[in-house]
Design a protein around this nucleic acid. Structure first.
Lengths: 246, 246
DNA sequence: ACATATTTGTTCGTATGTATC
DNA sequence: CGATACATACGAACAAATATG
């Protein structure tokens, strides 16, 4: 283990155990090897392994039972589909018992350069920004911001509060159908604010997607930036040119 | 700053500075605020800021000049396009002066469950695995493994050594055209082995893609798992159903 | 050329957290 | 549980390089 790296050894071990779990390494029994075995495997002291396990137990990844052993708490990564016709709400349906969206804030601002480019508006044109948090079975999985042309959708904030879904809002506002034009994906360390919102531990990884949705004639509808808790979700991109189904 | 989190404060600061840079915060002058100003902003000691800056300078993100200040070394994220007709080599062409692929190893193994499912083979069927590292302008950007049906492409390892590109290999082997069926994207902390291969610092983030390519009739050709250095690349997903161009 | 302010570089000391034994 | 070594973080002071007027 590297010292002087700014990451304590117990956290490096915790990350490696987490990856081993998500690689399916202990799937047969659901039990982790003993502390001594793990200490040998990672070439560290048993206490260090214990710190790592304590952190993972605290996150809800592991469950420790005195005298019996340490066990994996089953919670696989949700698969979030992305494709030409992806709808946020539908995407996760069936993978979790309860899906919940919480509207954090609605803002009306002049568009900065990035938002303007994505929506094909002038920089400074008024846009509405919805800030939302999404939960699956009570666990936060993503934090999103959605921008809309304020000229065209001035009251989408109120509507969202009522309907709780972007697709529903757009439908109500006369947008029968739309498609996703592009998606940009990147990965980062979580900012302190996100750590709090998504209930992550320091140094956690977020998957960030920036997407543009447009009507069938190409008119831009929505620009969104979503940060996912990387250890709770993965993106499933479908490249097949599927037939429409409205 | 969270203490006792297993991530040292200087590294948390380094990550936040990195994100501020990639958010374009200091784009006007290219100069960072002074150490004292940063210390105030992040509520830490100047030494802690200095450690963060030293780490970023060591990574090549910043350049420090005594008496003058600290400056951003311009190096934007490469955009790696992913779409139905993505080709690895073409994807980055034009964004870097020199692209290089190094073949680390070629293995012939029985397929594990995951590889078999992706390639639509029986578990245990012989497959060839190419392990490669990719560099842009001498900087490592990704580490990949590509699996092929060993029955169909027994000598693809030697061929790759000669041609240096999967597309070229497949073309030589009589595969005129192929498309990407699906891509799965996830983000993780880098494993120690990857830290070494991609020359990353501890705690670094990797973007992982798992993709399946198939012939036009749906026959599976290739399964690949690629790990990108997240701070050097982003994925650009195109959902438009583009016309073919061979 | 000069004095002064600003910015980075260095060296003390001290306290706390981390990892091993 | 302590004993020990090392890394991390803070604070203060001073040195060296650069910028400004």
């Amino acid at each position: 283990m590297e010292r002087r790296s700014g990451i304590s050894v117990w956290r490096q071990i915790a990350d490696r155990i987490r990856m081993a779990i998500s690689a399916g390494e202990f799937d047969d029994t659901g039990a982790l090897p003993g502390e001594m075995a793990l200490a040998r495997r990672f070439q560290v002291n048993r206490h260090t392994v214990r710190s790592a396990i304590a952190a993972l137990a605290n996150e809800g990844v592991l469950r420790v039972e005195q005298g019996r052993g340490t066990f994996i708490v089953r919670r696989s990564r949700l698969k979030y589909p992305i494709g030409r016709r992806t709808r946020f709400t539908e995407g996760l349906a069936g993978q979790a018992r309860a899906l919940e969206a919480r509207l954090k804030a609605v803002q009306r601002n002049p568009a900065d350069a990035e938002v303007a480019r994505a929506l094909e508006l002038e920089t400074g044109a008024p846009v509405i920004c919805l800030e939302t948090l999404h939960y699956a079975d009570g666990i936060p999985v993503s934090s999103a911001r959605n921008w809309f042309d304020a000229e065209r959708f001035p009251d989408i904030g109120d509507l969202y509060r009522e309907l709780g879904s972007v697709t529903a809002c757009l439908k109500r506002l006369g947008v029968a159908d739309y498609v996703r034009i592009s998606t940009r994906v990147s990965a980062h360390h979580a900012e302190p604010e996100l750590l709090d919102e998504l209930n992550l531990s320091a140094g956690a990884v977020v998957l960030k997607t920036e997407g543009v949705n447009a009507e069938m004639d190409g008119r831009r509808l929505e620009y969104s930036v979503t940060c996912f808790a990387a250890d709770r979700i993965e993106l499933d991109i479908d490249h097949t040119a599927r037939q429409f189904s409205n």
